[in-house]
Simulated assay, not measured.
Amino acid sequence: MKKRILSMMLVSALLVSATGCAGKKADTPAASSEAATTSASASASASTGDIKVGVILKTLSSEYWSYVAAGVNAASKDLGVSVDLQGPASETAYDEQNNMIETMLAGGIDAFVISPLQSESVASVIGDVKIPVITVDTDAEIPGKVAFVGTGNDKAAYQGGLFAAEKAGKGTKAVIIGGVEGNATSDARQAGYTRAMEENGIEIVSVQYAQSNPDTAANVMENMITAQSGDIQIVLCHNDDTAAGAATACKQSGLKDVVIVGFDGNQSGVQNIIDGTISATCAQSAYTMGYKAVETAVKSVKGETVKSFVDTGCEVISSDNAKEYLEKLKGYLK
């Protein structure tokens, strides 16, 4: 009997021991899973840090492009990626930009952001690359392009046109001073302005181009004033420099109470609103363009879905919000 009891006790002890061993084995996969998660997280972080985005803007030597560059640098810091940011000496240094493109692509990058000076030649230089290409500010048909990041120019100009129409009223007359005739950006802005005028019963009596030059714009505006015998209530411009030139001509001609709208929203343009030189500007979010361009490039490298058009929006700046917006612009460049 004693032997039987001892035998039963021995079997029970063995069962408890086996159960304890099984419990330890069940805990092991959980520890391994946690380690694997940590490792995967570290690997993802490392891979993000290894991403290199090449960015070539139209230039780095202007106020507008300094905002785009600030956005690029901010995205690089926030997203933890390496960015090679370059730009030619001016917006007419076509060969310099093309040479930069060749060198950058040969150097090895994971994604490429470009604001083309000459769309066709830039597309030719880029060729059939095997990395994501993102156009910023100015779109172009480029092989490998996955997205365009920039302003919806038609929509933005339409907003500026509505502001002018409300200020001047139905039955007034407007003129448009464009940038470069035949340029896609100029065409889109003209279309937006035109739509706003037509919808509000305002006649566009003249459309001329000033090559985005304030002195040329002043001459063009002077000729328009003469041709229309001063019967002009609205001047819609394709950039802030053109608006400043038009304002100079209006002042010299003694033409008052004219609603002058610019485009871009640079500090100089916003200051002109504060000073009463022009009425408003269609402010592009240049900083956001730079930031979103890098962000879109990184998403593309990671295989994430991106929109083919990332609209960075527009804000009409007038005397109501000019001072606040000017401080915002200054903050980007600190």
Rank of each mutant, 00 (worst) to 15 (best):
T38P: 05
S62F: 02
S62C: 02
L85P: 08
Y67V: 01
K58I: 01
A40Y: 07
D78N: 10
T28M: 13
K77R: 06
G54Q: 00
A36I: 08
D78G: 07
Y64W: 12
A74I: 03
A69E: 14
N73R: 12
A46H: 11
A22M: 11
D27A: 13
A42C: 04
V81F: 07
A46Y: 09
A75G: 01
A36H: 03
T38I: 13
A30I: 15
A44W: 06
Y64I: 12
T38N: 10
L85R: 05
D78A: 06
I51D: 00
A36W: 03
V83M: 06
E34Q: 11
A40K: 05
Y67T: 05
S32W: 04
K77A: 13
A35C: 04
S39T: 15
A42L: 13
A36R: 06
E63I: 10
I51M: 00
S47E: 15
L60R: 12
V72G: 10
S33Q: 05
G80V: 05
K52N: 11
S62P: 02
A30W: 05
G80M: 11
A44R: 12
S61D: 11
T37C: 04
A46K: 14
L60A: 05
K58N: 08
S61K: 11
T28Q: 14
S76V: 02
V53M: 06
G23W: 10
V68R: 03
G49M: 06
A35D: 11
V55T: 14
L57T: 14
K52R: 07
S66R: 05
Y64D: 12
T48N: 15
V53D: 09
G23D: 14
A42N: 13
I51E: 00
S43T: 09
S76K: 10
K25T: 11
A42G: 08
A69L: 04
A26E: 11
S32L: 14
S82A: 13
A74H: 07
I56Y: 01
G49V: 09
D84Y: 04
V68L: 14
A31V: 13
S47G: 04
G71W: 06
V72A: 06
G71M: 06
L57Q: 05
D27I: 07
D84C: 02
G49S: 14
G54D: 01
K58M: 03
V83Y: 07
S39N: 09
V53G: 07
A40W: 02
K24A: 13
A42S: 12
Y64A: 03
G23L: 14
T37V: 14
S43D: 15
K52F: 06
A26K: 04
Y67H: 09
K77P: 01
G23S: 15
L60W: 08
L79V: 08
A42R: 08
A31G: 01
K58Y: 03
V83T: 14
V68T: 13
